[in-house]
């Protein structure tokens, strides 16, 4: 074979490979690389969407970090939700999954009952919760009052608003329940039998048989939970609007993160700055911070995973 023929063959082979990769390359470039590069670019520009962008140096960055009063509360809230809401959702989802797999009768009914809330649209679900948890007129506080328990302010109290959002997230646990249930049913029964013969109790069986077997699923649930929470937007903004009763009008601005910025999250700031205040540059700064945080959390979890779980995936 002459070198020319060999080169032509290689070129053809490379083109075929490129052809097969093309859909991914196009998708990656259009939906990942271009937005990422644009975001970095616009974070250094002054751009309102109407006039051409102009160089702004690091002004957007310094504005967000040192002058924008909503950034730090939103970051704190987002971190709180990542740590508390994600953890409780994973633990609760796993608990419900364990419970459902142990039930002998009415399994279908319970599976449906726990899964159904997940299908509720987030806006409708949040509004329903805001009415149920209304401190003055909601049935939950009436019930708590009737049995002599304290009646929290829920979405109207800055110290209770995030726990109320967590409750809402636990109510819609159906997605995690299903994947945990599938993982639990996949654990080989022989391993439980061997552990029992070795005298392992329920906790030891869970710790040394169940957990190592489902560890990849737990990791998946945590990582996707972190990512979803980083993008948490609809529920807090709807809860804040319904609880405050303020739609927003001239001279009557909706309080971001009502009450007292306690439900403010970073995606709300991206929307507010980028789409309502026409400050695309600062919105891009916050979007990049979100991106960096999501990547950092994922990397950290991936690194910690080896130490936590003995079994391989």
């Amino acid at each position: 074979m002459t070198p020319l023929t060999l080169r032509a063959k290689r070129r053809r082979s490379a083109l075929v490979t490129l052809g097969f990769l093309a859909p991914w390359i196009i998708g990656f470039s259009v939906f990942f690389a271009y937005p990422l590069i644009s975001t970095v670019y616009f974070s250094f520009m002054h751009y309102d969407g109407f006039r051409p962008p102009t160089w702004n140096g690091t002004r957007n960055w310094s504005y967000v970090f040192t002058q924008y009063p909503f950034f730090w509360p939103a970051l704190r809230n987002t971190m709180w939700l990542v740590l508390v809401m994600v953890t409780t959702r994973v633990v609760f989802g796993l608990g419900i999954g364990l419970l459902i797999t142990k039930i002998k009768t009415g399994t279908g009914l319970f599976r449906t009952a726990f899964y159904l809330p997940y299908l509720a649209p987030p806006v409708a679900a949040t509004m329903a919760f805001a009415f149920l948890l209304n401190p003055g007129t909601g049935p939950v506080n009436h019930l708590l009052g009737d049995i002599g328990l304290p009646q929290p302010g829920w979405f109207n109290d800055p110290s209770w608003s995030k726990p109320a959002l967590t409750l809402l997230a636990l109510w819609g646990i159906g997605d995690l329940m299903v994947i945990f249930m599938a993982a639990l049913l996949d654990v080989p029964k022989e391993q439980y039998e061997a552990a029992e013969l070795d005298g392992a109790g329920p906790w030891q069986r869970f710790r040394f048989v169940t957990l190592p077997n489902i560890s990849p699923i737990v990791m998946f649930a945590v990582v996707t939970g972190v990512i979803q929470t980083m993008q948490y937007y609809t529920q807090p903004i709807v809860a804040g609007k319904v609880a405050s009763g303020i739609i927003g009008n001239a001279g009557q601005q909706f309080e971001p993160g009502y009450p007292e910025k306690s439900t403010l999250t970073l995606p709300q700031l991206v929307y507010n700055l980028g789409f309502q205040r026409f400050d695309t540059g600062s919105a891009c700064v916050i979007a990049l911070i979100l991106f960096a945080l999501a990547m950092a959390f994922t990397a950290l979890l991936m690194r910690r995973r080896g130490g936590l779980i003995q079994a391989g995936d």
Partner: peptide, 25 residues
């Protein structure tokens, strides 16, 4: 799994950025 999770994280964050940072006059 690590690569998949990292990619999902990056793609999800980027999808948020994509909407905020485009426009024309």
């Amino acid at each position: 799994l690590t690569r998949l999770c990292s990619f999902v994280a990056a793609a999800a964050s980027i999808s948020l950025l994509a909407g905020a940072c485009t426009g024309q006059s």
